[in-house]
Write a protein that binds this DNA or RNA. Structure first.
Length: 875
RNA sequence: GAAUCGUUAGCUCAGCUGGUUCAGAGCGCUGCCUUGACAGGGCAGAGGUCACUGGUUCGAAUCCAGUACGGUUCACCA
């Protein structure tokens, strides 16, 4: 049988993915087994796969595949998110290209376009996940705006409204002048901006001496909205302003000077201009002192009629113009460079405008309580744990959630306004009508009801995801939700801990009285070599699909996992995928070797093979035990590395080399069967990490029936671990390495046979292995090392190889001297410790005992080295 | 500004309740190796005052305090 010397992933991957699908192996139905559930963090429906998705979904797939192979009923629910703002922006852009303005369309027409767009681009990302090998239950694919999820969202809205947790009111909100919508606090990113601090003169009204106050502000364009000036009551330098009125420059409006301790005397001049409509703090002052509020902005960030001569201009242009105008009017004292933090929209990167507007809010305090506790007491565990702090801090300072958005793409708020004021909240217009009739004392028709134009924040649907994917909101007692919920693990990015994770936990307790998941694995950020976050705009992100074509999905999966402990950023480098690909190739070639052997039932098993089988059995068991521990701590990269070394070093470099028959010789059947069985176990262990190549080889290892698959077989169990055998074998490796080093040093080809002399304690049972691996003709005990031989120490036993050629005594001496001085130094430090009475008294007995042993070992080693040196001199 | 996490080999990271798993792993690097699974490979090597300064202790990479430098999150100083 001819098998290519290089593994070619492309055809293998699609073949097995189709096979898994065809045999319905990803699908899960409730049964008597223990469930294992993961819900996917739904990617944006019109998004494409990026490196962050690759990392995230690889981890989920590893967890799901492993759980499935542990006999659990594993269910990974896929789906997508309608991503209100992001998608709407994309559709608006697309229409703009076609010369259509959103404002020219009706809501229905716009939504038509949005659905078209969704149908066209939606689900691409899910197809890409299939390339990665994701074992999602595709029959369960959900969308945050499909019927079940939409109904769930409305239901929850109505329910929370009925409970009095949702309210409507005019509040200062974060306004995005580009997307033309309000945002929640979490959607605002504060960035440092280099600007100026403007010192403006406000003349005192009716002051004969022409005195004035100086106000320091970063936003001179908002002066038209000023309705007061504020000073600190105890500020001596501004005391002369008390009770006066000052004139707002340019608009010549008189405003009162108020006093409040909120003002920082030290900052600027100690005078604060108060613009209640455009600053959160000024708004609070306005409330406190009952100040009028003058809104000077249009929704798009241009000035409205209150902006006087600046009406119609953009806010940033006004800032420049006003600086000029005020300067000319002699009303600018000075300007100085100033750095401050400005909020920007997460989605549009537009500077946020604090704006008073009517919005819907959700009260968070009561919802937060059980959610905070659950993480605090580890009912829900975070990996890494440090995010508990972040979470706690947010939960303790939680504010009400602004859930309305002035967009069309999303779940329209189920509130219906009544003709003479007021509104009713209901699941449908019909229901609303019924309610309305009861509520009002005048005649109305259903057409008199007008539904609120706004939609809900995207996260208002995502926070129900673990419940809504099993229809647990609409039918709270259905079989599926009762079986699959609570889910087990959530894999997501720390950036959305507040947006999503925290809120899901809240919804979980509110609607199921149970945690929505048990463990949260936070992935890091995928960065490029320069440490920059990979992003579309920087263009520094490789295309995941191209990567998979180049290195194979298994190779890329491995590359992503090799160096990414939970919570750590991943400095991505293609060389890691290369390492992954190389490992695939190693497995492939090991398989070629084993499958290429000719088996002879009449050959008896050599001693060396018999021991190797026993040893590897123990090694395997040991690794399985360690693996379980690592998985329990979600240390996936370490788990993978452990398997990497098991396969490459222990299995390929040691085990296979030992049992490998001589060239063109057959192998005995006992060893052969054992080797196949080991291979089978190794493939099972590796499968969650690299599903494709393992399935390919597992199918080829034995004759499998149609429908059989590695992915639904079981993880191997750990057997007995013979610790003595394992540790003896480590010595054997050292002996073999020692001999190899001698060959290298002395330039002795492998073909040339050697002898091995041993002075000291040695277990003979491994001689067959040493002999085979080193091409030895004899291994014998000697009282001391022969002259003219090269040696090394393993423990306190001296191994030496007699050499026919004369050896370089000078070099030999140097080596021995170096070892002697090292060992003597070592002995000295041990002796120092032991002669310290306090150490002997205070340290644990076993520690002291250990030091004594070290002392004895070092002493005998020194004696041995000295003898060797002496023997060289004798000669 | 506050909170929090971190600093160990060229790179990415392990190192649990102080003492032989204490100075480790993978990659990279250096040398040698052409027939026999694999050069996408084999074998053997070199590489670190564990950021710094004090302290606790018989004993510190490990515990404590401070400093420096990074990261993350939060914050209304105009």
């Amino acid at each position: 049988m001819e098998i290519a010397s290089k593994y070619n992933p492309a055809e293998v991957e699609s073949k097995w993915y189709e096979y898994w699908i065809k045999n319905n192996l990803f699908h899960s139905e409730p049964d008597e087994r223990e469930p294992y559930t993961i819900v996917i963090p739904p990617p944006n429906v019109t998004g494409v796969l990026h490196m962050g998705h690759m990392l995230n979904n690889t981890i989920q797939d590893v967890l799901v595949r492993r759980a499935r192979m542990q006999g659990k009923n594993a269910c990974w629910v896929p789906g997508t998110d309608h991503a209100s703002i992001a998608t709407e922006a994309k559709v608006v852009n697309k229409l703009a290209v076609e010369g259509i303005k959103k404002s020219d369309l009706t809501r229905e027409e716009f939504l038509e376009h949005a659905w078209d767009w969704t149908r066209e681009h939606g689900g691409i990302i899910l197809q890409q996940l299939k390339k990665l090998g994701a074992s999602c239950d595709w029959d369960r694919t959900a969308f945050t705006m499909d019927d079940i999820r939409s109904e769930s969202v409305l239901k929850v809205f109505c329910d929370l409204y009925d409970k009095g947790l949702i309210y409507r009111g005019v509040r200062m909100v974060n306004w995005d002048p580009k997307a033309l919508t309000a945002l929640s606090d979490e959607e605002v990113i504060h960035k440092e901006v280099n600007g100026k601090l403007y010192y403006l003169r406000y003349m005192i009204e009716g002051d004969d001496e022409g005195r004035y106050a100086v106000v320091a502000t970063t936003r001179p364009e908002t002066i038209m909205g000023d309705t007061a000036m504020c000073i600190h009551p105890d500020d001596p330098k501004n005391a002369f302003l008390k009770g006066k009125k000052v004139i707002v420059p340019l608009v010549n409006r008189a405003i009162p000077v108020i006093e409040d301790e909120y003002v920082d005397i030290e900052f600027g001049t100690g005078c604060l201009k108060v613009t209640p409509a455009h600053d959160v703090n000024d708004y609070m002052l306005g409330e406190k002192y009952n100040l009028p509020s003058i809104d000077i902005f249009n929704p798009d960030g241009t000035l409205n009629e209150n902006g006087g001569r600046y009406a119609g201009m953009d806010r940033f242009d006004v800032r420049k113009q006003i600086e000029k105008d005020l300067g000319e009017a002699g009303l600018i004292e000075k300007t100085e460079p100033y750095t401050n933090k400005v909020g920007f929209s997460e989605r549009t990167d537009e500077a946020i405008e604090p704006k008073l507007s009517m919005q819907w809010f959700l009260k968070m305090e009561d919802l937060a309580k059980p959610a905070a506790e659950a993480v605090e007491n580890d009912t829900i565990r975070f990996f890494p744990e440090k995010y508990k702090n972040t979470y706690r801090h947010w939960m303790e300072n939680i504010k009400d959630w602004c859930i309305s958005r002035q967009l069309w793409w999303g779940h329209q708020i189920p509130a219906y306004f009544l003709p003479k004021g007021g509104y009713v909240v209901a699941m449908s217009k019909e229901e609303a009508f019924a309610k309305a009739k009861q509520q009002v004392d005048y005649e109305i028709t259903i057409d008199d009801l007008k539904q609120d134009e706004d939609v809900l924040d995207t996260w208002f649907s995502s926070w129900l995801w673990p419940i809504s994917v099993f229809n647990g909101i609409n039918e709270p007692d259905n079989k599926e939700i009762n079986y699959y919920y609570p889910t087990n693990d959530l894999v997501t990015a720390p950036e959305i801990i507040f947006f999503w994770v925290a809120r899901m936990i809240m919804a979980g307790y509110e609607y199921r009285k149970e945690p929505c998941f048990r463990n949260v694995y936070f992935t890091g950020i995928v960065r490029d070599k320069l440490g920059r976050k990979m992003s579309k705009s920087l263009g520094n992100s490789p295309d995941p699909i191209e990567l998979m074509e180049k290195y194979g999905a298994d190779g890329v999966r491995m590359g992503m996992l090799l160096t990414s402990p939970a919570g750590n950023d991943l400095p991505f480098d293609e060389s890691m995928c290369e390492q992954g690909r190389n490992f695939n190739n190693k497995i492939w070639n090991a398989f070629r070797l084993v499958k290429g052997w000719e088996v002879d039932n009449n050959t008896s098993q050599p001693e060396s093979s018999k021991i190797a089988v026993e040893w590897f059995q123990s090694k395997l068991s040991e690794t399985i035990t360690e693996l379980e521990d690592l998985f329990s701590k979600y240390r996936l990269s370490e788990a993978l590395m452990l398997l990497y070394k098991l396969f490459w070093d222990e299995f390929s470099s040691w085990y296979l080399e030992i049992v490998k028959p001589a060239y063109q010789q057959p192998i005995d059947s006992v060893t052969y069967e054992a080797t196949l069985s080991f291979f089978d176990d190794l493939l099972r262990l590796l499968h969650p990490f690299m599903p494709f190549i393992t399935e390919e080889l597992w199918q080829a290892l034995y004759n499998r029936e149609e429908g059989e698959s590695l992915m639904i077989s079981f993880q191997p169990d750990a057997g007995d671990i013979n610790k003595d055998l394992l540790s003896d074998f480590e010595d054997v490796k050292h002996i073999i390495s020692g001999i190899r080093t001698i060959r290298l040093d002395k330039n002795i080809p492998n073909k040339e046979e050697l002898e091995l002399d041993i002075a000291g304690i040695h277990t003979d049972s491994f001689n067959s292995i040493i002999s085979k691996m080193c091409n030895l003709t004899s291994i014998k005990q000697v009282s001391e090392k022969q002259a003219g031989s090269a040696g090394f120490l393993v423990g306190t036993t001296e191994y030496s190889v007699p050499l026919s050629e004369s050896i370089d005594t000078e070099a030999e001496l140097q080596k021995l001297e170096a070892e002697l001085s090292y060992t003597e130094g070592f002995l000295k430090s041990v002796e120092k410790k032991l002669s310290n009475e306090k150490f002997v008294q205070n340290a644990k007995p076993e520690v002291v005992e250990n030091e004594r042993k070290k002392q004895a070992d070092a002493e005998s080693k020194i004696t041995l080295i000295k003898e060797n040196i002496a023997s060289i001199y004798k000669k």
